[in-house]
Design a binder for these strands. Structure first.
Length: 400
RNA sequence: GCGAGGGUAGUUUAGUUCGGUUUAGAAUGGCUGGUUGUGGCCUGGUCGACUCGGGUUCAAAUCCCGACCCUUGCUCCA
């Protein structure tokens, strides 16, 4: 027998789980489209040079890219996010601005911590606009989605520009700024003392920077929050130590955390990346967007999921020596938009009902010779245990 | 990648202390029968495991070494 194992960091999602995950995706799509974002799909594999474009992923991500080589010797890599491919795609095509798109797909990172090396990211981005309304819309989408799935979150907002200005005012050498930003980013996790200690290891005195951070809310963040509130956002707030790891961010940045676990992993993150698209073409294209960590959100909500559904089937047809008539009834129901399944195992009626019960299918449709004679079928509500003799039209109305 | 703890059927697990008393036991699950006009209960049968490789030994799931994988902390990020 061939061995059965999935590669490190890759896993299967059985129907029971995938139904939940797809439900989340469906909700996201509706909201994305409500805000005027259209679907886009880019390849999972990109030229390595694209993924490695200067400033593309930053130093941290460089080593995390899954790389491969095709037979012609071309150096390729699996996308580690969807923002870099988006920038490449936009630069390659003549697209009108603002270009608002969403993309839901798998991204890959060969990370140390070995957990999910493959995970789903749901991205929305707006290219071509410098308006704070564009950033506010992104935040509003986040609020809308997390409200809908019932997660209590906090949306932290800050500005890279603001951080950079403080750094340069404090005369932090250019090459130390990014590392220092990353240390400050850990503030709410490790605390101020540890941040100062780590910065000292870097050869930098973080104290004047931290002091400056206590100042007023930066103008760009204020603008975005103002519009966001007008759009109904209530959980967003200015957090001066938020920074985010990618180097390509240039302005406002935001990150979403569970209110109950604000020091844990973020479940969505994004911001302005006004220089990224410019790496792939001659003109400057301002941009803002967010990546939502669907895999992580699923991990959170799966624990509160109780009666888990194992199938999407709504009604299961149990023929009793009436297979020929039954398949036609299945077609009628399917044409009416129902999810219909029919016995393929030639099981007895008892075994069929056992199967229906175990799968959690809400209705069984018993199609016997007696019913056929009357031009009817017997609809069984599995939960209530009640049976009614009805015609096919009524079945459709009942289940819908 | 580093530190710590683990790895027994699809899943949860007994057995590992102190090598032999076990054809590795159970529960749950899969298939199937009791039950070709009625499921959830009951009951019979059946399927299915010691992560891999080496070593010690008369004898290894059990002890030793190595690899791999998992969990957790660090790290990183969605």
């Amino acid at each position: 027998m061939a061995s059965v194992e999935t590669p490190k960091g890759m896993k299967d999602f059985l129907p029971e789980e995938q139904i939940v995950r797809q439900g989340l995706i469906d909700k996201l799509k509706v909201i994305f489209e409500k805000y005027g974002f259209s679907p886009l799909e880019t390849p999972a594999i990109e030229m390595l040079s694209v993924l490695n474009a200067k400033g593309g992923g930053g130093t941290a991500i460089g080593k995390e890219i899954f790389t491969l080589t095709d037979r012609a010797g071309r150096e390729l890599g699996l996308r580690f996010d969807q923002t870099v491919p988006l920038s490449r795609c936009f630069a390659q095509n003549q697209l009108p601005i603002p270009f608002k798109r969403y993309q839901i797909g798998k991204v890959f990172r060969e990370e140390f911590g070995n957990k999910n090396r493959e995970f789903i990211q749901c991205d929305i981005d707006t290219l071509g606009s410098i308006s704070p309304i564009a950033d506010a819309e992104i935040i509003a989408v986040l609020q809308n989605f997390f409200d809908e799935i019932g997660l209590d979150v906090i949306i932290k907002v800050n500005s890279r520009r603001f951080l950079d200005k403080i750094m340069s005012d404090a005369k932090i050498p250019e090459d130390k700024r990014m590392p220092l930003v990353l240390i400050i980013d850990k503030m709410n996790k490790i605390g101020e003392t540890a941040v100062i200690a780590e910065a000292r290891k870097l050869g930098v005195d973080a104290r004047p920077v931290l002091k400056e951070l206590q100042g007023n809310i930066p103008e760009d963040v204020a603008q975005v929050l103002k519009y966001a509130q007008q759009m109904g956002v209530k959980d967003a707030e200015f957090v001066p130590t938020l920074a985010r790891g990618f180097e390509y961010y240039t302005g406002v940045v935001f990150e979403v955390y569970l209110k109950s676990r604000p020091d844990k992993l973020s479940i969505a993150g994004g911001g302005r990346f006004d220089n990224l698209v410019g790496l792939f073409c001659d003109r400057e294209v301002p941009a803002t967007g967010v990546g939502i960590g669907l895999s992580r959100i699923y991990d959170i909500i799966k624990e509160r999921q109780k009666d888990r559904v194992k199938t999407v089937t709504q009604v299961y047809i149990v023929p009793i020596k009436t297979e020929f008539e039954a398949v036609k009834i299945a077609k009628q129901l399917r044409d009416a938009g129902l999810n219909v399944d029919i016995d393929l195992m030639e099981r007895s009626i008892g075994k069929n009902l056992q199967y229906v019960d175990k799968q959690g299918i809400p209705y069984a449709l018993i199609v016997g010779e007696e019913e056929i004679k009357q031009g009817k079928v017997k609809l069984k509500d599995m939960k209530a245990g009640k049976e009614t003799l009805v015609d096919v039209e009524q079945v459709i109305n009942e289940i819908k």
